[in-house]
Design a protein around this nucleic acid. Sequence first.
DNA 1: TAATATTTTTAGACTGCTCTAAATTTAGAT
DNA 2: ATCTAAATTTAGAGCAGTCTAAAAATATTA
Lengths: 222, 222
Amino acid sequence: MLSFTEENYLKAIYKINEKTKERASTNAIAEIMQTTAASVTDMMKKLSNKNLITYERYKGSKLSSQGAQIATSLIRKHRLWETFLVEKLSFSWEEVHELAEQLEHINSNKLIERLDEYLDFPKYDPHGDPIPNAEGKFTLREQIKLSQLNIGEEGNLIGVQNHDDQFLEYLNELNIKLGSRITVTKKVLYDKTYNIIVDNEHTVQISEKVANNLMVKKILAL
Amino acid sequence: MLSFTEENYLKAIYKINEKTKERASTNAIAEIMQTTAASVTDMMKKLSNKNLITYERYKGSKLSSQGAQIATSLIRKHRLWETFLVEKLSFSWEEVHELAEQLEHINSNKLIERLDEYLDFPKYDPHGDPIPNAEGKFTLREQIKLSQLNIGEEGNLIGVQNHDDQFLEYLNELNIKLGSRITVTKKVLYDKTYNIIVDNEHTVQISEKVANNLMVKKILAL
DNA sequence: TAATATTTTTAGACTGCTCTAAATTTAGAT
DNA sequence: ATCTAAATTTAGAGCAGTCTAAAAATATTA
C-alpha cells in the first residue's frame, strides 16, 4: 500500500513525462511537489527500491511499468471524480480540481468501477481530457488548437490545454463551454487576436494565448 | 487543519462517550484505535493543547464543544457517504463502512452540502443511524429493541445496533432489511429464541442476541 | 579546457506518530 | 490499611517525510 505522498510523487513524474518525454529532473519534481530537491532525492531512492521508478544519480527518474500503471489509475480516479462532481453535484469545471486531488487517493477498485458505471463510462472529463479505462487505455481524438483553424473554418471545443481556475472562469464569462461550436471569422495580424463566433450566437475577440489553449475538433465543410 | 489521525482519535472518543457517557479511558481509546496506551497519552496531550478535548492525567478524556463539533461533522460525512454508496452506487449495507472511513476525511463543506442535497437530505443512513444536519442536530426517533415487543405485536425495522459485516450478511440471508415489517409470534423461554414473521411473507427463528440488535418502531394496533 | 554556474546529492536535524520498557498512579482485595 | 493488580504515563527510540547547509557532479561559457 502506497502513501498519499508516494502516489503524488508518481503522478508528478507522470505529468513531467507527459510533456517532456524525457526523464524527470529532481528539480522539476520538486517544483511540482512544492518541496526541496533534497526531499525529492530521498523519495526517488524509496520509489526506486519499490521498483516504481528507474532512478540514476544525477540523471533523473522515469516511471517503471508498474509505476506508470499506478499513475494512470490515479489519473483515472481523478478524472472520474471530476466528472462526478460536475455532472452529478453541479460543480463548475474550475472548482473540481482540488477536490479530485483528495478523492483520487480513496482506495477501492470496486468504488471506482461503480462510479464509472454510474457516470455511464465517460471517455472524457469536464475539461475534455481523456479518462483511461480500467486497463489504462486512453481514447484519443483528433484535436487541434483553435489557432490552427483558418478563417471561415469551424470546430467543436473538446478540451482546454490550461486548467487554471482563472482561465476557466474567463471562458465561463465568454460563454464558451465544452461542446461549443466555434467559428473563426478574423485573425488580426498586428496584435494577434482572433474574432470568433460562439454557438452561432455571439461574437467575441480572444488573444492568441487563449486560442492556443482551446482544443477543437474541426467540423468539415459539406 | 487536523490530520486524518487526529480526526480519528476524536471520533473514537465520541464513540466511547456515546455508550458510556463517562470520560473515555486511555485504554478504551487505544482499543478502538488499534494502538498502544502510550501513543494515546501522547495524542491526548496534543488534542488537549488544541482545546479539542479536556484531559486530566489518569482520569481520561472528554470532547470539548469544539471537539464534539468536529466529531459530529465526521459522523455526518460518514453517514452521508454511506447513504450515497448504497443509494446511488448500489453497494450493500455491509460493504460501505470501510469506504466511508476513508471518504469521511475528504475536506470540503461545499462537497458535503452538495452531496446532502443530491441525496435529498436523508435523515437516516443505510443502517438506520441518524445523520446529523449541517448544524450537528440529530433527528431522533422512538425506537425499541425487537426483543421488547410482546407476542402479537409488530414493528418496522428502523436500525441495527450492531454493524458487523457478518451480522448484516446474516440479515440479508433472512431477507430482513431496513423498513421490514416484523411480527413477533412466539418467544421460546428455555432457549430464548424468537419466532418472527418478516413482511408478512416468511417466518424465521432468531436468537435473543439478534432480537436485541434489531431496533424497531412499534406499529400501534388500530 | 579551465573557470563558473547550476543541479543534484549527502549529512544531519526536526516533526508527527508510533513503539517498548520502565516508572507511577489508581483501583481492588484481603 | 496494606498489598497486589490494573491502568496510565514517562522516557527513549524508530520511521516517514521534511528541511538547511555543505559537498559533489554536471552543464555552461569564456
